[in-house]
Amino acid sequence: MNDEIIDEVRSIRDAHAAKFNYDLRAIYADLKKSETERVAAGHPFVSPPSEIPVPKTVLQRTRFARR
């Protein structure tokens, strides 16, 4: 099944990676640079949680049971 939004995101991601010759270190450095610039411009940055969240409902427990 093809989704046009997924295809667009993948093509953008591939173009970005190609710009750095698929070098993961260079891609990471560019993403960190972009992140630093956005934070300096005043955009909010949300840090990941320090602890893994505990499911509160039965649905959440069954949904994430296999992870």
Rank of each mutant, 00 (worst) to 15 (best):
M1G: 15
V54N: 05
D14E: 11
I52D: 06
Y22W: 10
A15T: 08
A15Y: 08
P55T: 06
A65D: 02
I5E: 11
R38L: 08
A40V: 02
V46W: 03
I5K: 15
K19M: 13
N2G: 06
R25E: 14
P44S: 07
R66M: 10
L59A: 10
E4S: 13
K32W: 06
F64I: 04
R38Y: 07
E37M: 07
E51I: 05
R61W: 01
I6W: 15
A18H: 10
R63W: 06
A41Y: 00
P53F: 05
L31I: 11
D30C: 04
V46D: 07
I12M: 08
R10T: 07
T57N: 00
A29I: 00
E37P: 00
R13Q: 01
I12F: 10
A15N: 11
H16Y: 12
P55A: 06
E8A: 12
E4M: 12
R67T: 07
G42H: 02
P55I: 07
D7Q: 13
H43V: 06
K32G: 00
A15W: 10
M1K: 15
I52E: 10
E8T: 15
H16R: 08
F45P: 05
Y28L: 05
P48R: 11
A29Y: 01
N2H: 12
V54Q: 11
N2D: 04
R38P: 02
V39L: 12
I12R: 08
K33G: 06
V54F: 03
R10Y: 09
A65G: 01
R38H: 06
T62A: 13
I6L: 09
R63P: 00
Y28P: 02
Q60P: 05
R13I: 01
V39G: 03
T62Q: 12
Y28W: 01
Q60A: 14
A41G: 00
